[in-house]
Amino acid sequence: SKICLVCGDEASGCHYGVVTCGSCKVFFKRAVEGQHNYLCAGRNDCIIDKIRRKNCPACRLQKCLQAGMNLGARKS
């Protein structure tokens, strides 16, 4: 099975251009559409994995963007 390129959980498919799990898919959509201005309490290098993905939305969003997630991406 495929793994989420953001948190490493089991992926549910290709979302916004990137193979991700459902949790990261929903997080990314809400983060971008809600125009959240997340700030990292650390050094913008928090570990984002299945267990810690909820700890720092700033670093999670950064990881989504680095993976290439794009709200305008067509479903493939």
Rank of each mutant, 00 (worst) to 15 (best):
C7A: 00
C64K: 00
C7W: 01
T20P: 01
C59W: 00
N55G: 11
P57E: 10
C14T: 07
V32Y: 06
M69L: 08
C24V: 00
V19C: 06
A67K: 05
D9V: 13
G8E: 08
N55K: 14
V18K: 06
Y38R: 07
C59A: 01
V32D: 11
C64G: 12
D9F: 04
R52P: 08
R74F: 07
G42H: 13
I47Q: 11
Q35T: 08
C21K: 00
Q35L: 07
A11F: 04
C59Q: 00
A58L: 04
I47Y: 05
G34Y: 13
L39D: 15
V26N: 05
G13S: 11
L5Y: 08
V19A: 14
E33P: 05
Q35V: 08
Q62I: 06
G42Q: 14
Q62C: 13
E33T: 10
A58G: 09
G68W: 02
Q35C: 08
K2W: 03
G72M: 10
T20R: 01
R52L: 05
S23A: 05
A67E: 15
I51S: 13
N44Q: 10
E33I: 05
E10Y: 06
K25C: 12
A11P: 13
L65R: 09
G34W: 04
I3A: 04
C64T: 02
V18Q: 05
A58R: 11
K63H: 06
V6A: 10
P57D: 15
E33N: 07
A67L: 13
F27Y: 02
C40I: 01
N55F: 07
H36I: 12
H15V: 06
R74M: 12
K54M: 12
F28C: 02
C14M: 14
R53L: 07
N55Y: 04
C24P: 00
H36D: 13
F27W: 03
C7K: 00
I3Q: 04
K50N: 03
L5R: 07
G72V: 14
I48F: 06
L61I: 04
F27E: 00
C64N: 00
D45K: 08
C7I: 01
F27Q: 01
G42N: 11
G42L: 13
V6N: 01
L5H: 03
N44G: 13
C4G: 01
G17W: 04
N37P: 07
A58V: 02
M69F: 03
D45W: 03
D9Q: 07
R74Y: 11
R74N: 12
C40G: 00
G13C: 02
Y38K: 11
L39I: 10
Q62G: 11
N37V: 14
M69W: 02
G68P: 02
R53V: 14
